[in-house]
């Protein structure tokens, strides 16, 4: 038995074209690439803590993708809000940091200098601080060490 097959293989993977059902409110996706997300990660964690935790608790309740759409929209809206605020207030520092991450394999320890200016700006303008949970008590958080052992080799 032979089946009909097209003579060409599609270069793009098949993508379901059906849009989201109408009863689900639309939310614009964040659309930010990995480096800016990594740069903003701790601020997203600080700024959207309640929405994120709400969403994760909802997901713990039920893993069905349809179960937490409402909470998910809130999470996305909050993150979009934060990215917009960052761009309004600290665009220069934000750009410098995520471009540095982009060029340095997205390693935080190689971009401490732009990170510090960004953290400073974020604290002054938006009052958000980078806190790494689980840092041993009485120890300087790793992003604030003055002379770290791991640092970029090329200055």
């Amino acid at each position: 038995m032979s089946t009909f097959q097209k003579g060409t293989v599609p270069t793009q993977p098949y993508k379901e074209p059906t849009p989201l059902p109408d009863h689900v409110p639309k939310v614009e996706e964040l659309g930010t690439t990995s480096a800016p997300l990594k740069s903003a990660a701790f601020f997203i964690g600080a700024y959207c803590k309640e929405y994120n935790e709400d969403f994760m608790l909802c997901k713990a309740e039920n893993r069905d993708p349809g179960h937490c759409l409402k909470e998910g929209r809130r999470v996305t809206r909050c993150a979009t809000d934060l990215i917009n605020k960052m761009r309004e207030n600290c665009l220069e520092q934000f750009d410098a940091h995520w471009n540095c991450l982009e060029l340095n394999n997205q390693e935080y320890y190689r971009c401490r200098k732009p990170e510090r200016t960004l953290n400073k700006c974020m604290f002054e303008k938006l009052g958000l601080t980078k806190v790494i949970p689980g840092t041993p008590a009485g120890q300087k958080p790793v992003h604030e060490i003055d002379s770290p052992i791991f640092k970029p080799i090329q200055k």
Partner: peptide, 24 residues
């Protein structure tokens, strides 16, 4: 720890986006 937490903070965001697509 810093790297792991930066990813943990992004999980809800990425999961929400993925869920919307999966639901669709």
């Amino acid at each position: 720890r810093e790297k792991v937490w930066s990813r943990i903070h992004l999980v809800p965001l990425l999961m929400a986006e993925g869920d919307r697509d999966a639901y669709r």
